[in-house]
Design a protein around this nucleic acid. Sequence first.
DNA 1: CTGGAACTGTTCAATATAGAACTGTTCTAA
DNA 2: TTAGAACAGTTCTATATTGAACAGTTCCAG
Lengths: 153, 153
Amino acid sequence: MLKSIQLLHSFWNVQKNLIKLAQKSAVENGLSVPQYSILMAMKLDKEMIQKNVGEVTFLPKSTLSQAVDGLVREGIINRQQVEGNRREIMLSITEKGDALIKDIYLQEGGIHQVFQSVVEDMSESQYDELLRGHLQITTFLETEAQEIGECMK
Amino acid sequence: MLKSIQLLHSFWNVQKNLIKLAQKSAVENGLSVPQYSILMAMKLDKEMIQKNVGEVTFLPKSTLSQAVDGLVREGIINRQQVEGNRREIMLSITEKGDALIKDIYLQEGGIHQVFQSVVEDMSESQYDELLRGHLQITTFLETEAQEIGECMK
DNA sequence: CTGGAACTGTTCAATATAGAACTGTTCTAA
DNA sequence: TTAGAACAGTTCTATATTGAACAGTTCCAG
């Protein structure tokens, strides 16, 4: 029991700092936190169905919808109906959005730069262990979260 | 660069599940997320100055104040001025609050129970490595967050 | 075909959150 | 002392978030 509390605490400590940094990063770039999440979710796949963005970010539908709306108004992402399935909407990052993302990466004191330092300060094996541990935990949590997801519909 | 993004991603995956679980736990027990945070912060030291709770939880003063207000109305914590320093307010968990915390710990499918399973599924050394890695990261983030904290005043 | 169930996303109203201005307290330097 | 700076918390208000009701699509059993 004690160990689990300790581990939870350990995550919590990382968490709260991470969130603070993310919030700061978001505000500095004129984004809400949900908007920031969306961009980070799409940084790899520059094109995604809105539904999938929702699954990755865990944002409620309404929040997602409004956040996307703002991003579209800002010209950061494009929104167009998928032909072949008019229910779905394809989101894609514009050049402007792409530039913004690159900017965010390089911001001094931003999450990414800080994590860059963290990684450099870490041994190869330590890094691997960390990833492995997290993966294991995520798998556990995901099966649990699934059940929550079920009732959210 | 790639590694830091990967690590960030790894944390993010744990994070979002953790938050979902915490939210669920909070709602199920009739608490807001800030209220839940406060209780978790006070689970060890059953008596704390409100200021300190704020430092630990990172909650904005106004949010903290209101959340505490609700908890007091529910009879979960007590609030009384510190004699010797009438600016400060001492928060203490009532018996009712204590029972609630114990309840939360034991809730099936709650964060604590899930983490219990996680820990059992983990080798001693893996556990230690994880804690060590997190500590290292927290230290890094904390020095960074400090600067943010400075301007929040 | 067709009617209803399941999807995908939007809108709107109610709630939650947090910055800014405030009250009262303590500390400190002249 | 005593003004004024720093503190600890509260209140008020504007903003952000989200659940619930909704509109249009797609799917499928009969």
